[in-house]
Design a protein around this nucleic acid. Structure first.
Length: 476
DNA sequence: TGGGGTTAT
DNA sequence: ATAACCC
């Protein structure tokens, strides 16, 4: 984008800009929030300025944790800090810390290649996602304290709609008597900037909170929509943040070297676009809408062509609790029913623990397989069915065996997909619980809710459960 | 390519 | 149930 990374200097420039509008008296509006000096992440803030404007009135932040799994591992075992660290799943290094990246290790690199590039590389197994998942939700919950509208994207990214928060802070600034906000900034151009800069200050506060409370560093991008916020968060990479002012929008999207880098344009669409001779953002912007609609369907065509202009009106959807829980395992070969059953039992056992802790109940169960095929990229098959109501009822109640009926169901689904009388070769098994419902389907008053919820937590965790149940009942 | 997730059709 | 997308 023709903008140099800025450390302290970048902050100075922005403080100047803000003070020029007379809101600097709020103190460190953009830079380091006050006395966080030695421990906090350097809240470097960058600002792009170039002409042309597309402007909705939202303020969105995209928060993206740095090499998340590796950070969690370094928190679990501080001895790993300072060493090149990779997180391994099967024969892949799925992510690695920045020490490892400096030595040439890349995400999703083969373990052999990684060791060759970097013999000192320390590897930890990351196939069990439990700790990552838990930390991930802590981050989301922390962000929800700032503003309730938080959308998760994977385990390490979150969008937050800051529009309401920014509105409140602007109002507060006016009440505090910052006349420029009421008088000079009636200028529409300036007020857009001010709102984004306030968003950037909130982003710095979010990163600071994530670091102080959870020990994690990450990047943030602030812009007027999700697409732009996401793209801009990746400009200055570890532990920095960037705000996109509207005039820089076109520069940002044209900094993409290929349409495949556009979030929302995936593998398949990229292939189809390339077949039409479309490879750059400019190609997509100028391509005939009519032909694009015919090739991709009106919905996809319209959406991705908007994306190519940096336009994205999709709302930040509050993720809330997960819609599904699944566990999967991949392997070189599974070719017998007994073998499959063992693996399915393992997956199911972990899932039952998770679903129990969640408190809600799944009404549907699904089994997913991947068959071996020598070069036919990717394809999974699945079978699902309702979970019988008598099994659902036993779900929270620890002393009844829920494994046996569930395994029976799963093996029926298995035999429905795989003809076990013929040779087969599977490379993946996965079990998924979905269609989750809160246990109090008969929604009465708050009383009813409180009772059912305490009973379920109680039955979930063994010995403590009765105590918890009693306490709750007495409290009530 | 792993071990997850989501929504649309 | 699958296909597309995201990490």
């Amino acid at each position: 984008l023709g903008v140099e990374p800025q450390e302290e200097g970048g902050r100075q420039e922005e403080e100047d800009a803000v003070q020029g509008m007379n809101v600097g008296a709020t103190g460190g509006l953009l830079g380091a929030p006050g006395p966080q000096e030695p421990s906090g992440p350097p809240p470097s803030v960058h600002e792009q300025v170039v002409p042309t404007g597309s402007s909705s009135s939202r303020v969105i932040v995209h928060v993206d944790l740095d090499c998340f799994y590796a950070q969690v591992e370094m928190i679990s075992n501080p001895e790993l800090r300072g060493k090149p660290l990779g997180v391994q799943q099967k024969y892949l290094v799925v992510t690695c810390n920045y020490e490892a990246r400096k030595l040439g290790v890349k995400k999703l690199m083969n373990v052999r290649d990684a060791k060759e590039k970097c013999p000192q590389l320390v590897l930890v197994n990351g196939e069990d996602l439990t700790r990552y998942r838990e930390m991930s939700y802590k981050v989301t919950e922390l962000l929800e304290e700032f503003s309730p509208v938080v959308e998760r994207l994977g385990f390490d990214e979150n969008f937050v709609d800051l529009s309401e928060m920014v509105k409140k802070r602007l109002k507060q600034l006016r009440n505090d008597g910052h006349s420029a906000v009421t008088v000079s900034a009636i200028n529409l151009h300036d007020i857009l900037h001010v709102r984004l800069l306030i968003g950037s200050q909130i982003a710095a506060e979010m990163r600071e909170a994530i670091y102080n409370q959870l020990g994690l560093t990450g990047c943030a991008g602030v812009a007027s929509n999700k697409l732009l916020a996401k793209l801009v968060s990746g400009i200055f990479k570890p532990n920095q943040q960037t705000v996109l002012l509207p005039e820089s929008c076109q520069d940002l999207i044209h900094s993409l070297n290929h349409i495949k880098e556009m979030p929302g344009i995936g593998y398949k669409t990229t292939k189809r676009l390339e077949a039409l001779g479309i490879s750059s953002v400019h190609d997509l912007q100028t391509f005939s809408s009519k032909i694009l609609e015919k090739e991709l369907g009106i919905s996809v065509a319209h959406r991705i062509q908007k994306l190519s202009f940096g336009e994205d009106n999709s709302p930040v959807m509050p993720s809330g609790p997960p819609q599904s829980f699944s566990e999967e395992d991949s392997f070189k070969k599974c070719s017998s029913e007994v073998e499959a059953k063992k693996k399915i039992e393992e997956l199911l056992a972990s899932l039952l623990n998770r679903v129990c802790q969640d408190g809600r109940k799944p009404y549907t169960i699904r089994l997913i397989i991947r068959r071996y095929s020598s070069e036919k990229h990717y394809s999974r098959e699945s079978r699902q069915c309702p979970i019988p109501s008598h099994v659902i009822q036993k779900l929270g109640t620890g002393n009844y065996d829920v494994m046996t009926p569930m395994v029976d169901i799963l093996m029926k689904l298995f035999r429905n997909m795989v003809n076990v009388k013929m040779p087969f070769h599977l490379t993946l098994l996965s079990v998924c619980f979905c269609n989750l419902k809160a246990l109090n389907t008969a929604k009465k008053g708050p009383i009813d809710y409180y009772l059912t919820s305490s009973l379920s937590t109680a039955s979930c965790s063994g010995k403590r459960s009765f105590k918890m149940k009693d306490t709750h009942m007495e409290d009530y």
